[in-house]
Design a protein around this nucleic acid. Structure first.
Lengths: 147, 147
DNA sequence: AAAATAAAAGAGTTTTTAGTCTTTTATTAA
DNA sequence: TTAATAAAAGACTAAAAACTCTTTTATTTT
């Protein structure tokens, strides 16, 4: 009954990539402890999420002293939709609002077209904004990532 | 990782009220077995959901022979948003997309305004359509409720 | 009144999501 | 080359959501 648009895992993923992007703009790295406390998430749980994002090349990591997570030039230009898809899959963009597997253009559920418009708007938003897009507002303290 | 807009419970709830409205337009009642098979949901699980909707007055029920569920005149005019709120609460309309409790107009998360537009669109859609609105398209067989 | 019917209620189990704890591996700096 | 550091990996536990099964209560028909 908590019910966000994304899973909690995905919320942590998005907040963490924003945080990492913001903190590693000048080539440095940031550790899991700092990220977890910076975005108010459970440390080890976030570690799992970042391991996965790392395997997928969305974030980069380095072990050992001065190691940590960072995001390379290409990563900063990635749309947010890639983060969301990596974690929650693409059903949020394509799935039927009423949970009907058959639902399609030719075989629509009662709310098919209405939901399509909303899903497309979400899709556009996530595809048009990149990970880097939010560093600026975070820098200025206009937006925040902690609870 | 299945991730619809609504919980499965809520999807069943919406599909069942559409089904009941459609089947009981002329004052008759429909039993839980028929509803469950009509919308492809687990019978006893749906029973719980309908018990709850019944307590809230969204659907009506009658025990015994010729008993079953139905929706009265007032119920048919209820907006879909009441069904959704009864089951999933209102966080879908009000919650922060990134799961941040503090997030608000004066203390926005990085995606606050973007998500607000999407949430409002969903809210409008659900508030402007009533339970009865879909009987017609179901009658014509244009839309369906089974998987 | 008894039998049949059908929802209500209660008490579970299963599955998924979220979160924790411990050990291992890689890297770096002294 | 050893000690320290930090992510990766693995094996868990906890909580929530989804689902099942059984018993009870209300209603109606015979």
């Amino acid at each position: 009954m908590v019910m966000g648009i994304f899973s909690k895992t995905c919320e942590y993923a998005i907040r963490s990539v924003f945080f990492i992007a913001h903190r590693t703009a000048s080539g440095n790295r940031v550790g899991i402890k700092e990220i977890a406390s910076g975005i108010d998430s459970p440390e080890h749980f976030l570690a799992k999420i970042l391991q996965d994002l790392s395997r997928r090349g969305i974030v980069q990591s380095a072990k050992g002293p001065n190691g940590g997570f960072y995001i390379d030039e290409r990563g900063l230009k990635r749309p947010l939709s890639e983060v969301v898809e990596a974690v929650d899959g693409n059903s949020i963009f394509t799935g039927c609002g009423l949970g009907l597997a058959y639902c399609s253009e030719t075989n629509p559920c009662p709310l098919h077209n209405e939901f399509k418009a909303i899903r497309n708007q979400l899709k556009d938003l996530l595809e048009q904004t990149t990970i880097a897009d939010f560093s600026e507002s975070l820098n200025l303290g206009i937006t925040k990532l902690r609870k």
